[in-house]
Design a protein around this nucleic acid. Structure first.
Lengths: 142, 142
DNA sequence: CTAACTGCAAAAACTTTGCACTTTT
DNA sequence: AAAAGTGCAAAGTTTTTGCAGTTAG
């Protein structure tokens, strides 16, 4: 994981560059998503921010996440129940999700480029964004 | 894709074997999910069955799909908006989803077993069920 | 000052649930 | 006849939307 502070600065800079406003709520969300070891959901972000900004609303969380996603600065991990967000590695990469405790870990695995090429060749399908999720048991739960 | 009739018979046999009842609605859903080239969603199955069984309800669709899934006879493909179901190849395999027309195609690609092993070794995570989705453009849309 | 953002509440969309009725076996 | 399944409508979730009020730049 990149240094949270560095990542925070990157995100803030990206927002500034496109002249998006740095509201306290937005900055706090960016702070959380830069620092979070885990991969928080909108609900989790909402709950945390709510403690500091009691008026925080779902709308703001979702709108800010959509903004960051559109800027390609966060990766949306869409799961069965809700979406989680990865603000540290905003490019496609595998995730491992524990069936017991629901923890989400990052996977350090790359798809074999030649397999991908072969699949594209034989299927005629142009792959733009791969999404790989491994369900299983995390080290703590197995 | 396996022969739809053969697959239909397999599913019916699996239901019988576990003494689940063969109601007309259930049989029709099984027929659709065996024959479908595509990977229908609950809503699509509901709509199709509704034409023949006007009293068909969402509950029945969802309960039957849950049953077949529990029996490991259909694979649930959970997407951002809803779930789609694959009744022909009920084991994990990659899917290619068109960003333009939303068509879902089956991918013939296997993960490199040694990469998987390596990931499990380095992460300590035990992989039970991989889920691979490629978003991109299908042959018709590119 | 003005465009952008927030917050509230209502709406949307998919899925689940409770319970009475019906049907398969 | 009994156990299992269906159907209806209501409720539960997550996410989106409209709009009035607020605020960053």
């Amino acid at each position: 994981m990149p240094d949270p502070e560095v990542r925070f600065d990157e995100l803030i800079a990206a927002l500034k560059e496109r002249s998006f406003r740095l509201t306290p709520q937005r900055v706090e969300l960016v702070r959380l998503i830069s620092a979070s070891e885990g991969h928080p959901s909108a609900a989790q972000l909402f709950a945390k921010i709510k403690t500091q900004f009691p008026t925080m609303s779902h709308a703001t969380v979702y709108k800010t996440l959509a903004l960051l996603k559109e800027m390609k600065q966060v990766l949306e991990i869409d799961l069965r129940d809700d979406s989680h967000y990865d603000g540290n590695r905003p490019y496609p990469h595998p995730h491992m999700i524990c069936l017991q405790c629901s923890k989400i870990l990052d996977g350090d695995m790359d798809l074999d480029p030649s397999s991908i090429k072969k699949l594209e060749r034989t299927s005629g399908f142009q792959i733009i964004r791969p999404q790989i999720t491994f369900y299983g048991l995390c080290p703590d739960c197995r």
